[in-house]
Design a binder for these strands. Structure first.
Lengths: 229, 229
DNA sequence: TGATCTATCTCGATA
DNA sequence: TATCGAGGTAGATCA
């Protein structure tokens, strides 16, 4: 296997005493200390201290290129951001071929909530009917457009966590939809797994209804429904 | 050194073929593959594939506890979130004592922008004067309150990147401030290093002025000023 | 402890 | 390519 292939195909783990400077969207400096330097197969570089699971102390996202010279590593990307690592002492240096990761399978995000609620629109009220999901408007799609038991139009904004900007977003949709004589009057429902107090106050103040969604209950209803067939 | 001290004091790097399941705020599953498992001194655990510098495939933030049993690692936190790692084959396993990191020194964030602009408020217009930074209101502090050359009150909202929710925020401040007869009429300025088109459209539509800040120029002015003394 | 806000946010979808 | 929105956002700050 060529050197190039090796450089592109492995994860390299270096434990070293180093200083690091980042110059890009901001300037940042790390004083000398022992850290983990991780170079991945895609060329990305990250520097970890011995705490925090998620965020590296410093990093450079791919695509970027690494030049190694006399214990000074220079990582640059297309935008001209620069990460300079000065290695003072290397404690450990190993490389490992991992191959391509099959990737993550997720469940329980907003898109799924939208599907579930659209399929079970009567959760919002008996006799309610779905007009459509992702109802298009000039300023973006409304999550769900439906009609209540009286045939009045209702716009539903769905969030996993309901905060103030979600209410603002729905307010803009309602303003726009209410200009359409075929739809008006349109009222709003703000639906989320969790609604922050400030968001609830603002929504209520604007005549927007709030609904807290129970993901497991919605899914349970779905499962029950599936069992019937 | 006791076993407990070792477990608490080192970073452990394991390269292993594993499957991972996370159950918590959502459910997620990683099929079998070779990955890096990193256990840090604070007890946090992260799982990395051989790409992307910043974000792990899966993780558990501290504080959390790890139980190791028959190749099954179970990481739980106080909220009841769970990360289950099933190790099938271990390729590498090393531990390294790093010590406490001295931490990152940063420059160029929003707080600094606010200081700079407050110190150089005439950047917004000749004859403008600062009333105060972090002007308190019932719904939170206004970044900068100042007066233009005619003595009219101006509220300034500062962001590094100006997006639509920043305009909404300033709008709420203006609505409130304009109820105060000692201040009214108050107009708004939306100031940011970069203003997104949608934010600019919304601001303009609401009679809010937009100013793009040049961080280096602001700092340069400061530096020049400092040189005079 | 809870609420709010920033971030070198990252990352993906989309126009 | 630029923009927009979601995220197991995480992490910090302040009440």
């Amino acid at each position: 296997m060529s050197v190039e292939a090796v450089r592109l195909g492995v994860m390299r783990l270096v434990i070293a005493r180093c200083t690091v400077d980042y110059a890009g969207r901001l300037s940042a400096h790390l004083p000398s200390a022992l850290r983990l330097i991780m170079v991945k197969a895609d060329g990305s570089v990250s520097i970890h201290a011995d705490d925090r699971a998620y965020k590296p102390l410093n990093w450079m996202s791919p695509p970027c290129s690494l030049k190694e010279e006399d214990g000074t590593w220079t990582v640059v990307n297309k935008a001209g951001e620069k990460l300079i690592i000065s290695i003072e002492e290397t404690i450990h240096d190993s490389s490992h071929e991992l191959g391509v990761d099959p990737g993550l399978v997720k469940d329980g995000v907003e898109a799924h909530l939208q599907e579930l609620l659209a399929d079970r629109i009567t959760t919002l009220g008996a006799g309610w009917t779905l007009v459509r999901r992702e109802y298009p408007t000039a300023i973006g799609p409304v999550d769900i457009l439906c009609r209540d038991s009286d045939g009045a139009t209702v716009a539903v904004e769905i969030k996993r966590r309901g905060e103030i900007d979600g209410v603002e977003q729905l307010t803009r949709y309602l303003e726009l939809l209410n200009r359409d004589p075929l739809l008006a009057p349109v009222r709003g429902i703000f639906a989320a797994q969790e609604i922050k107090p400030q968001a609830k106050v603002l929504a209520t103040d604007r005549g927007i209804g709030c609904v807290v969604l129970d993901y497991d209950a919605l899914r349970g209803v779905e499962d029950d429904k599936l069992k019937l067939f």
